[in-house]
């Protein structure tokens, strides 16, 4: 569960709040879109969840972790329960697909004995097993994003955070990618939060949508559409 209680965030030196008095909950196994205009605070919310940024006010609870009380030393262990996907994939260019996946298990000290099987398992799951030995630059954008999603799945996260995962993809691939998140949510029971600007896809997927505007939560619809006005009008 992700529980935000009156969370505000002001960046150092900034005049206004990037996130202001945000309160919302996401239950285990939910799928949520986070939408809003540029600069409305979507990425900031993710950075608060990953504890890349400290919050200014309020409290955040993620699963059993109270982020206000989480000690600096414990942060890495908390992050192992999250899977993060970026718009720009962030694959390591000098490593093959398989090495990129193995890397994230290696750096949290998992016995190499378990790693190879897990790499194969996850690559099969995202249907990329045949590209195992390729380097990132030998893959299409959609394939790279699938690898980066596979990487986020490696450590069996309880929550997946995807910040504009389709931002660099054409519409057809965007649909596939969002469908992949839906499948992860459905089959692996992983909680999924996706920030996106894909109006059409949000509209057609009928998921919960949280609307942000200038740092404030201005709407939260169970089977929402991209435009908050549209959502209101429909129901």
């Amino acid at each position: 569960m992700i529980d935000f209680q009156h969370v505000s965030k002001r960046y150092k030196g900034a005049e206004r709040f990037a996130v202001e008095d945000a309160t919302f909950q996401v239950k285990d196994g939910e799928f949520v879109f986070l939408v809003g205009p540029s600069g409305s605070g979507k990425t900031t919310i993710f950075k608060l969840i990953t504890k890349e940024e400290p919050l200014t006010e309020g409290s955040i609870q993620v699963n059993s972790f109270d982020l206000n009380r989480l000690k600096h030393r414990r942060v890495p262990f908390y992050r192992r329960t999250l899977g993060v996907v970026f718009q720009d994939f962030r694959l390591i260019q000098t490593k093959t697909v398989a090495e990129n996946l193995a890397f994230v298990m290696k750096v949290i000290n998992i016995d190499p004995y378990f790693i190879d099987d897990r790499v194969d398992e996850v690559l099969n799951w995202v249907d990329m097993a045949d590209k195992k030995q390729r380097f990132p630059h030998e893959l299409s954008g959609g394939e790279q994003q699938r690898v980066s999603i596979a990487r986020a799945l490696m450590n069996r996260p309880e929550v997946i955070l995807a910040d504009e995962p389709t931002g660099n993809l054409d519409p057809e691939l965007s649909r596939d990618t969002l469908r992949l998140f839906e499948r992860i949510n459905r089959e692996l029971k992983t909680t999924v939060l996706v920030v996106t600007h894909e109006k059409v896809l949000v509209d057609e997927m009928n998921k919960r949508v949280i609307y942000l505007d200038r740092g404030r939560i201005v709407g939260d619809r169970q089977q929402g559409t991209y435009e908050i006005a549209g959502a209101k009008g429909r129901r």
Binding site: T50, E52, R73, P76, F77, Y78, R79, R80, L82, V84, R90, I92, Q93, F103, V104, V107, I108, N109, R151, M154, N155
Partner: peptide, 17 residues
């Protein structure tokens, strides 16, 4: 840097980095 950023986000300890 890219490698370190990935390490940090997937939960590598500071000692490990």
């Amino acid at each position: 840097m890219e490698e370190i950023a990935v390490m940090k986000i997937v939960g590598a300890t500071n000692g490990f980095v």
